[in-house]
Design a protein around this nucleic acid. Structure first.
Length: 600
RNA sequence: GGAGCUGUGGUGUAGCGGUCUAACAUGUCGGCCUGUCACGCCGAAGAUCGCGGGUUCGAUUCCCGUCAGCUCCGCCA
């Protein structure tokens, strides 16, 4: 730094520093050359400040400043000065002052960046990812990084205060059945064998409970080799924890405290506790989702009973075949055109809905191609149930319960977004409890654990485990924020007999269970405390606190939807020799071209 | 595995069968400018319209394929 030492950050200086000689270091945000006077906005992670080059202050520096360009890295020494009357800039935090530069040193020159280093720019995400280090210079990205850091620290402080120990668990571990697809790592020292990267530290944290750690946490990277979404990356970060001698209530209460403290400290928001709670069934019935967004209404309404007796075959047959007829009231959408409704129908079809019936509510009653299948009392009953008023649009789906819930649940959110009725400043946290313990896997033709095979069933549902597995509820809970699942966990099974019932229910024989989970089962024989835990999706939490639409915007170096890194071009090819050492051979006839350059 | 949207100078967009020899803004480069802060003014350079094929007298524009990015379904807690 050519003998200079930074005295302040750019954004730190205020009018109070007037007259002080300071040394600043940072990037050239913008340059305004007036011929006889040059202004530069200097940027570091704290913000911007205007620095002034004038031949009257230092002519050598002034001349040198003429050659300075965007994103050059400068060191400047000069005097802080209140700006001349009428030239202050209220749009800048440091707009009352400027630094009159005596000495200028160019620490680094810079090529013109491929996009503007400023907030709110809509650049092709391709470019942002390829030049991620430049993207991260933008103030909003810096804010996200800072928020992420502060949130991690707040979580550590909170959990430390509540007796948790931060303990790390292996990244090279053993592949386990159930759950997501594993990322595998070949073992050089053990030919033909593979490690798996952890989907979560689930089993290790339970073993730590057996070890008597009592309260564990970790802010930990997890890996799942599944397809990506706006809120799903192949590697992501969890706030993972586990507690001994607790029940559902204890976990929920503690986590409510953590969440409200995070909101207070991160975004100055007071969260009302206790948080609302919904059973899984209630959430599905009212919102068609196990992660309801309660920032707006438009709840689902069941009319299966009315539909059963009507003359409309689609409705009656759904009702007869164990399905449902339900709908939502798109209030004020009575003016929707044929095309608008077609678009909604197409949208519902994504979720396997075979059709979308509708009533347009007018002063003369319901209008629709299907009203002829209903008598006056039936129509009146439906309108009343939806609390329908003139100008409303009622939308119905008749199908199996899962299709009805999925399509109407998605339609509800879709319409709310389209109508812009979601209050953006609300943070609606809630719990969803009493999830089904098991769900039927059509592909494998067996019951599988919805959460994982160590999740404890509700005591009162135990007898159902052998007679009606689908009805068994779990001591599992999810925490949801504005319609996005941000965490989930459960009380675990610590009784040997219950664990055997569970394995039995998911079709694992004693021998298979032993083969797959021998170390867990063995450990559980040595005195297991009742325990339970939860894990938060840290990236999602930060995304919501930062007001972003995708976790890519709060992950420093994220991957694209096809799981590649456009900056490093990972995954890349490896040498034949590396493969040989790992005892691996590709089944591809031709290996992909190493320079398969995706960036034109 | 599937559906949809997008791809035009460095960047963001317009053009959607024919003076398109591709327009605008911004950036870049050169010149002028002592109070700007999206500085201003004058000038210049910069694009085989993602790639391949087809239809057509003629394709940036229409069709098919393909690649990349995004959103979603499936998948995934």
């Amino acid at each position: 730094m050519q003998g200079l030492k930074r005295s302040h950050y750019c954004g730190e200086l205020t009018a109070v520093d007037n007259g002080r000689v300071v040394t600043l270091m940072g990037w050239v945000n913008t340059r305004r050359d007036h011929g006889g006077l040059i202004f530069v906005d200097l940027r570091d992670r704290t913000g911007l400040i205007q620095v002034v080059f004038s031949p009257e202050i230092n002519s050598a520096s002034f001349t040198k400043a003429g050659g300075v360009r965007s994103e050059y890295v400068l060191a400047v020494t000069g005097r802080v000065s209140i700006r001349p009357e009428g030239t202050d800039n209220p749009n800048l935090a440091t707009g009352e002052i400027e630094v009159l530069v005596d000495e200028l040193r160019v620490l680094s020159q810079a090529k013109t960046p491929p996009f503007y280093i400023e907030d709110g720019v809509e650049v092709d995400e391709n470019l942002r990812l390829r030049y991620r280090y430049l993207d991260l210079r933008r103030p909003e990205m810096q804010h996200a990084l800072h928020l992420r850091h502060r949130a991690a620290k707040a979580v550590r402080d909170f959990l430390d205060e509540h007796g948790f120990w931060e303990i790390d668990t292996p990244m090279l571990t053993r592949s386990t059945p159930e759950g997501a697809r594993d990322f595998l790592v070949p073992s050089r020292l053990n030919a033909g064998r593979f490690y798996a990267l952890p989907q979560s530290p689930q089993l290790f944290k339970q073993l730590l409970m057996v070890s008597g750690v009592d309260r564990y946490f970790q802010i930990v990277r997890c890996f799942r080799d599944e397809d990506l979404r706006a809120d799903r990356q192949p590697e992501f970060t969890q706030i993972d924890m586990e507690l001994s001698f607790v029940d559902v209530e204890d976990v929920l209460e503690l986590m409510e405290k953590m969440v409200s403290r995070l909101c207070r400290e991160m975004v100055g928001l007071e969260v009302e506790t206790p948080l609302p709670r919904f059973t899984y069934q209630e959430a599905m019935d009212r919102f068609g989702s196990d992660k309801p967004d309660t920032r707006f209404g438009m709840e689902l309404v069941d009319i299966t009973d009315i539909a059963r007796g009507c003359g409309f075959k689609v409705f009656t047959s759904a009702a007869e075949e164990g399905g449902q007829v339900r709908g939502i009231n798109a209030a004020g959408c009575g003016g929707y055109s044929r095309k608008d409704i077609d678009d909604l129908t197409k949208f519902a079809a994504i979720y396997r809905a075979r059709g979308l019936a509708y009533f347009i509510v007018t002063a003369e009653g319901a209008k629709s191609p299907i009203t002829k299948f209903f008598n006056d009392q039936e129509i009146a009953a439906i309108l009343e149930r939806f609390n329908a008023r003139e100008g409303d649009l009622l939308l119905f789906v008749a199908d199996q319960p899962d299709v009805v819930a999925a399509s109407l649940g998605a339609l509800r959110v879709h319409l709310a977004e389209q109508l812009d009725i979601i209050p953006r400043d609300k943070f609606n946290f809630l719990w969803v409890t009493d999830f089904p313990l098991l769900e039927y896997d059509e592909e494998e033709k067996r019951w599988v654990a919805m959460h994982h095979p160590f999740t404890s069933p509700l005591e009162e549902d135990l007898p159902l485990l052998q007679t009606d597995p689908g009805k068994v509820r779990a001591r599992a809970y999810d925490i949801v924020l504005n319609g996005i699942e941000i965490g989930g966990g459960s009380i675990r099974i610590h009784r040997r007999d219950v664990q055997e019932l569970m394995f039995n229910a998911i079709g694992l024989t004693k021998e298979e269970a032993h083969e797959k989970f021998f170390y867990m089962l063995e450990a559980f024989e040595y005195g297991t405390p009742p325990h339970g835990g939860i894990a938060f999706g840290f990236d999602r939490l930060i995304m919501l606190l930062a007001g972003k639409k995708t976790i890519r915007d709060v992950i420093p170096f994220p991957k694209t939807q096809s799981a590649t890194d456009l900056m490093t071009m990972a995954p890349g090819n490896v040498d034949e020799r590396q493969l040989r050492e790992l005892h691996i051979k590709s089944t591809l006839k031709k290996l992909p071209d190493q320079n398969n350059n995706k960036n034109k």
